[in-house]
Nucleic acid binder design. Structure first.
Length: 243
DNA sequence: GCGACAG
DNA sequence: ATCTTGTCGC
């Protein structure tokens, strides 16, 4: 499996190779109750898919929500059996198949997809977002709540909303020393208590800088970017129906 | 043996 | 990820 991941890493493209209109994405308002920017000048915001999962006993709910700004264009999910344990570094072998099951039921073809986990921030530069992006050949990036590996180039405490700190490869990773494999992104912040940043990295056909910009543009007032947040909520909703 | 570890 | 009530504070 590790060999496959190294192969995936060499095939994946950690550079911009897509046509997402970032300017239009910037104009999009992801506030759930705002629809006013959907028909703004310069074209509609791109289709952004959020992917997240919720677990049952021996099964997993894989949810996909596609947004155009704050508008939910499509929601779909799949319930699949779990056949592999959680092993740090091998997450795609546990969650990848189930995620692809869900994508098979998706009609829309998103301009970019956000996965819950790492992309290039991975020992072999082939995290879940990289694996999925390549398998689906869709621009993809990973959004993780915790750092799997790599080293922030500066303190990530006390960052203001909108700030980001590059994450460089460390000696446990395949990437050449000093390679910027992602960013710690502060999507939200308060004056009093500290909110941790999310760790964003390229999956496929997206550069580290663009991955960061996409996540910042998708902020909807919560820690998680809106596509991820609504997919998370949808996964829990579906799980409740199966429990 | 020690350390480190997405979801 | 998941098990879980209340609770302190913008």
């Amino acid at each position: 499996m590790e060999a496959l991941q190294r192969d995936i890493a060499t095939t994946a493209r950690f550079e911009d190779a897509f046509d997402v209109d970032l300017a239009a994405l910037d104009r999009a308002d992801f506030a759930p109750d705002d629809q006013t920017t959907l028909d703004g000048p310069g074209g509609d915001p791109p289709l952004v898919a959020g992917v997240d999962q919720a677990f049952l006993d021996e099964r997993v709910v894989s949810a996909i929500v596609v947004l155009r700004g704050a508008e939910v264009v499509e929601r779909t999910h799949a319930v699949s059996p779990l056949t592999f344990p959680y092993v740090p570094g091998l997450l795609s072998f546990r969650e990848g198949g189930p995620i692809l099951d869900a994508f098979e039921t998706l009609d829309a073809d998103p301009d970019v997809a956000l996965f819950d986990g790492s992309g290039r921030i991975h020992f072999r530069q082939a995290g879940l977002a990289t694996h999925m992006g390549l398998a689906l050949d869709v621009p993809a990036l990973g959004v993780a709540k915790r750092l799997l590996c790599g080293t922030p180039v500066a303190d990530t405490d006390r960052l203001d909303a909108g700030d980001s700190v590059a994450i460089e490869s460390d000696d446990r990773m395949d990437a050449p020393p000093g390679t910027v494999v992602g960013h710690a992104v502060q999507t939200r912040q308060f004056d009093s208590y500290r909110i941790n940043p999310v760790y964003v990295s390229p999956g496929h056909r997206v550069s580290a800088a663009t991955a960061r910009d996409v996540v910042l543009a998708c902020r909807g007032g919560y820690k998680l970017p809106e596509p991820t947040r609504v997919a998370d909520a949808y996964a829990d909703e579906v799980k409740a129906d199966y429990s």
